[in-house]
Design a protein around this nucleic acid. Structure first.
Lengths: 195, 195
DNA sequence: TCAGGGTCTGACCGATCGGTCAGGCATGCT
DNA sequence: AGCATGCCTGACCGATCGGTCAGACCCTGA
């Protein structure tokens, strides 16, 4: 055997992503991942400190983008925040379909752990922004339905091209979201989104 | 101890519903349920043949209503099917919030078992009806987003009164769904959308 | 009084989980 | 040659899982 470290490391990561997306984090054993890679379970635990560290490394890119989106939202309010939240999350969900699928349904206990503790707060702020920071139940419910539904849709429609899926989701969100200010029409808000 | 059979039976059912809704089916052990009831794990398995039977009995009422909704949809097309699917599913999701929460995220393996095998087909038909039986990706994606999002929202907003939640969800669905022309069933407006 | 059925339990089972550990096997440097 | 280092593995560990089983504890009816 004796492959290059980066090679095996990456293979394990890819295999874990595939298995997690199908059977979930809890529903996938280290043995399953090792079998898919073609190595032993001990090898998996040689490259990753434990199962949770494997998940953390798998989610890191998506979490980084989510963090960026959250940073952008801190300075925005009203319709601008709605627009950035909508386009930002749709883009993120489409790009990281597989990672989103992993987290689907494993929230309550998994996201309380240290590596993911702040995700819940970020997603709450995201939902708040999408609801136009309204405290009425209508917009808040709509925001949750859309965010959760988009995650599910991205996890399900794996065979649709990125841009087509993104366009359909954005159209849906724009139609479904109540603009926060009636007299202030929704506009693209071409904020410079440097990365 | 020695409570009446129906009493303990119901208590186990209620405790299981509570635990499943929080930690999921796979994430809840029979020991957890027994601890919440205040009896032994063996007692749980005295009242229910196995863990899956416990889940099946828990979901039976919701599944029955879902089956009814599916039956109603078989004779409908176009806008009528959309309307019935929307109101029917929103009503179902609001009424069976806790049961919906259980199934959230445990789909791929759990719903393949005999007691739940037909749920997937029903939910596909439901999604199809909500999409106005269109084969364009836009409506189909929108239908999935809404169905999944509604499930998630009902599982999350446990403290909102039924009618308020139902009203908000129906408003959202009506705004988000593209109404299909009643006199033109399935108009192929897809003008070279392929990639 | 006693038999019998319904209810409940502790003890136990095999399987599987995440994780540890000592050591094998290459490779490369001195 | 000798040694160190990185990669990998089989064997093993304690914990927990779903599930089984013999028997204890009621209550009731004969």
């Amino acid at each position: 055997m004796a492959r290059a470290v980066s090679e095996t490391h990456g293979e394990i990561l890819a295999a874990a992503a595939r298995r997690f997306a199908v059977t979930g984090y809890r529903g996938t054993s280290l043995q399953d991942i090792a079998r898919e890679v073609g190595c032993s379970k001990a090898t998996v635990l040689y490259h990753f400190a434990n199962k949770e560290a494997l998940l953390a490394e798998l989610m890191a890119p998506a979490i980084a983008v989510l963090q960026d989106l959250d940073d952008q939202l801190t300075d925005l309010t009203g319709a601008a925040a709605q627009e950035v939240a909508a386009t930002g999350f749709v883009d993120l969900a489409v790009r990281f379909r597989r990672e989103i699928a992993v987290l689907r349904g494993e929230f309550p206990e998994l996201l309380c752990q240290p590596p993911f503790a702040h995700i819940q707060r970020i997603s709450e702020r995201l939902r708040d922004a999408l609801a136009g920071h309204s405290d009425r139940p209508g917009p808040r419910i709509a925001a949750l339905v859309l965010l959760a539904g988009i995650s599910e849709a991205c996890a399900e429609f794996v065979d649709i091209p990125d841009d087509e899926l993104r366009a359909a989701l954005l159209t849906l969100v724009r139609r479904a979201i109540e603009p926060v200010d009636a007299h202030l029409p929704r506009q693209p808000t071409t904020e410079d989104k440097d990365s």
